Amino acid sequence: MTDLQYPVKDKVAIVTGGGTGIGLATALMLAGRGAKIAVAGPEAAPLDEAVARVEATGGEAIALIMDVTNEETVANGIAQVVDRFGRLDILHANAAQTGMLAGDGLIADMDADFWDRAFAVNLRGAMLTAKHAIPRMIAAGGGSVVFTGSGKGLAGDLDFPAYGTTKAGLLSLSRYIATQYGKQGIRSNVVVVGLVMTEALDRNMPPEAQTLMREHNMVDYLGRPEDIAEVVAFLASDQSRYITGASIVADGGFTSHSAVFADMMRFTANQSKDIL
């Protein structure tokens, strides 16, 4: 895609969780289409690498060490972006607590501190970044907020209830932002993400599990970070000016079908074999 199709040229974007995965893919894609980028996260090394990759293609980027649960660091980080680039137009609120998901199991066994930490990063952090980005966007004439949601926030499951509940909360947060600030030029949307195969997940997820997930996709492949970045880039651009308060599901059709879809596919295939 060119910046003529998804015009973000000369816009300024901040991407939280911008050093890896979906955030990195989004930062690179927006930069490739002419936006100036601030990548934010808790660790310097991946952010510095992201900045280097943007600059290697001729783009402009800065790194922000930011703990999204700490309001002071969020406010200071967003102020740095405006000081450097003069404005703020796009917020991709992508930061999420994922490193502790191994403890995100049964509700009856849930550690309350674990639960609170998930909410602090995934939901409070999203609110804080939006809180401090929105006035800067209004001052610049408007802007787009894009949250990274998850299919885990759409339905119950056997695992990840803390993560899923925070992601469900983003749907409501986004609608409130769209309602409260729409007349001031602010749009807010959520990209509801299915399984996305980052390099680390590709290495560590057993092939059998990947096959199981692919069976439930309507397309015959698993998503990549760039697939999500395409949707974020569209929502960040003026091409999506009539879309706000919405949730766009980018999961290969995983949540669009009957829960027994894959089982019925196998059943039908076996029935055909029996007839033959």
Rank of each mutant, 00 (worst) to 15 (best):
Q5G: 06
A13R: 00
I14T: 04
L24A: 06
A40I: 05
G41F: 06
G41Y: 05
E43V: 11
P46K: 10
E49A: 15
E49K: 14
R53Q: 13
V54M: 04
A56N: 09
G58D: 02
D67V: 09
D67Y: 02
D67K: 08
N70D: 14
V74E: 00
I78V: 02
A79R: 13
V82K: 06
F85D: 08
R87S: 10
H92L: 11
A95C: 07
I107G: 09
D116L: 13
R117I: 14
A118P: 03
A133M: 00
I134R: 03
V146S: 02
T148P: 02
G149E: 00
D157N: 10
F160K: 13
G169P: 03
L170P: 07
L173E: 00
R175N: 07
T179E: 13
Y181W: 10
Q184L: 12
Q184A: 11
I186H: 08
R187T: 08
N189D: 02
R203V: 12
M205W: 01
P207A: 03
E208G: 00
N217D: 11
D220R: 15
A229L: 05
E230W: 07
V231N: 09
V231F: 12
F234W: 12
D238G: 15
G245Q: 03
G245R: 08
G245H: 03
I248V: 15
G252K: 09
F254H: 04
F254Y: 10
M265V: 15
M265G: 15
F267V: 08
T268V: 14
I275E: 12
